[in-house]
Design a protein around this nucleic acid. Structure first.
Lengths: 365, 365
DNA sequence: ATAAATTTGTGCGTATGTATC
DNA sequence: GGATACATACGCACAAATTTA
């Protein structure tokens, strides 16, 4: 007799009930690894169902890998190696790996991750959005727990949004560093780039400079914000901003462009007496352009870099620069990741307040 | 009636026959992705078995992920994403990540790996064998395709041999860089450290030095070999080796030890007029010790480093150094890995022949 | 738009085979 | 050998979703 009408079981089939019951027993450690489950017969009478029903429940539990059966002996709880460990990978993608501030950032990340038993799946985009796409697609296959990512050319449209959506849907935690994609909800660890740009400009203004040029990167958010801070400082100190004092470049032809821009600015009749640069790389290029023009630093032209990278103290002249927290930012991004994974959080935010370090390139020797 | 006696079916149950039959249909593309399978009823009459038997076959095929069923519609062949991609990870472990020659090595590795669609699982040991153990254990869980590893403190006993055995048993390809563990059969990409040590010493001998000190690392094979090359040069040029001219340190207290060793050597009555150093880091420390002693470089004391790292040109004096192929070595190690994975090879070897680059620290300005 | 047919889903009962203790 | 437990197999009934007439 089929008693579907009898009780108010709107949804759950009987074998599902049995299955859930057994899963509870396993979950609550009432039946531990290797211990025997009740026999099919026992469960038949306990639940007052047919043997087939029990068998269907067991069958599904078997293919889930929770139990195994031995003919003639019984059915047993299976040893599952501690909470699938293969998820203990955090993917990390940055613009570069071996250059500039990135070894430090990665060092900070690795330190925290490996301390927590996680491994780091690392790649770099080299400012190429296709490489970003490729890596993001890769990690979808790889069952990672989290992703720490520095968006590539973040001021452009985020072509990878669908991939981020899928990652989020899969429960992969995401932490942005240096910049964010606005259309992706995630945690972030940022530097206050706007304030950095402001500090750089303000420093030069206070030194008495009035014709200050800015060279910024156009295709990422950091560039836009540093530019914005630069403009804010000019306004606050009531300095006019001639339109041609601010120039921008994109990452195609990265090494050529800022040099040409600097050269052009320097050949104007009212040439700038100071440069605020997007980063130390650009600053080094500007330094070269100034020297190639036969001008001295800092006497004729002052230069401020950004990021306080090794490059700012490597060259023949030590660069005044805005301090980027590098290792500390890496550590914090990784700590955020751990916290998100442990406590199922999704929206942690931190913004570092930058400071300026003053060196030879703005006149302090 | 149960007709087990009827035919000579010694092993295979009926549902298994049905299952195999359907798997054939799928394998031979007779039923393609998304196409409908025969209904349970059709198969019942075709195989002359009960519906439950068909259902059991289908049930197993479902949990294998080969088919899916839709109530009221039918059973369909499922699209399986081509050949599980999750193995496309190569683990990489080096002494450091963000320092010294390692960003370059890692850059070279990443370049090749990502070009081949592989991702890089990266960690560093920081000269700590326990960290090596931890990482190796980690990657066993992570189903990686290969491992590129710089052995840590390779002159000591390889406590991780059992883990390497397990990795090899699992088919994980291994490439050693910079040094090998003799008890682990694998490919390797090395530098001829012995020749490097020889070149360094020979250079100083040809400059006329006769009292040449060597400071080497004791706990890794590179150190032993560089020392050996140093000794070989002394012998070839028939210079006596006073026992106290060669000193060794271990990586505990890495930054303190070589300094003290150098100071001690410099306070001898017949102090050395030249140093061959294990690497550029040690060389930089020796430079400091010489200066702290009030001696000039290269006039009073000459110094040769090893690895041609950034440090050799960063400091106040540019170091003569033995060239390490860094990026190139990284690329080759990764290429070996790809080749091993593609062609199932296991024993590729390459040894770079080092050259010396001469700079200020041995008298050329 | 409805009814009928088809197909899978859930469930019961029964019988026999085979491995373990 | 006997009891127990899982494995295989058949038959039947009704439910639910989908397609078709």
């Amino acid at each position: 007799m089929f008693e579907q009408t009898n009780e108010n079981k709107l949804e759950e089939p009987k074998y599902e009930m049995v299955k859930q019951h057994v899963m509870q027993l396993l979950k609550q450690d009432i039946i531990r690894f290797g211990e025997k489950l009740p026999s099919e017969h026992e469960l038949m009478s306990q639940f007052n169902v047919s043997r087939n029903t029990i068998r269907q429940a067991f069958s599904e539990l078997t293919s889930l890998g929770l139990i195994y059966k031995e003919q003639g002996k019984g059915t047993y709880s299976k040893f599952v190696p501690k909470s699938r460990n293969s998820k203990k990978i955090v993917a990390v993608i940055t613009t570069y790996i071996s250059d500039y501030i990135f070894p430090d950032i990665i060092f900070g990340i690795e330190e925290v991750l490996s301390g927590e038993g996680y491994s780091m799946l690392l790649s770099n985009t080299n400012n190429n959005k296709d490489k970003e796409t490729q890596f993001l697609n890769n990690i979808i296959e790889h069952d990672v727990a989290g992703l720490i990512i520095e968006p590539t050319r973040s001021a452009l449209a985020n072509i990878n949004q669908p991939i981020f959506d899928e990652l989020i849907r899969k429960g992969v935690k995401i932490v942005f560093i240096n910049a964010t994609y606005d259309d992706v909800p995630a945690s972030s660890v940022l530097l206050d780039d706007e304030r950095g740009g402001f500090l750089a400009a303000e420093h030069l203004i206070r030194l008495g400079h009035t014709r200050i040029a800015g060279i910024f990167k156009k295709d990422d958010i950091q560039g836009l914000k540093r530019r914005k801070g630069f403009v804010a400082a000019m306004k606050q100190y009531k300095l006019p901003i001639e339109i041609n004092q601010i120039v921008e470049y994109e990452t195609t032809n990265e090494h050529i462009h800022p040099y040409i821009l600097a050269k052009t600015l320097l050949s104007q009749p009212d040439r700038p007496t100071a440069f605020v640069c997007y980063n130390d790389n650009v600053a080094a290029i500007v330094v070269q352009a100034i020297r190639d023009r036969g001008l001295s630093i800092p006497e004729s032209v002052a230069v401020v870099g950004f990021d306080d990278s090794k490059r700012s103290i490597d060259g023949s002249i030590k660069l005044t620069s805005v301090i980027h927290p590098k290792i500390e930012m890496g550590r914090r991004a990784a700590s955020f990741m751990i916290e998100m994974l442990d406590n199922q959080l999704d929206d942690l935010q931190f913004v570092y307040r930058p400071e300026l370090i003053i060196r030879e390139s703005t006149g302090v020797t």
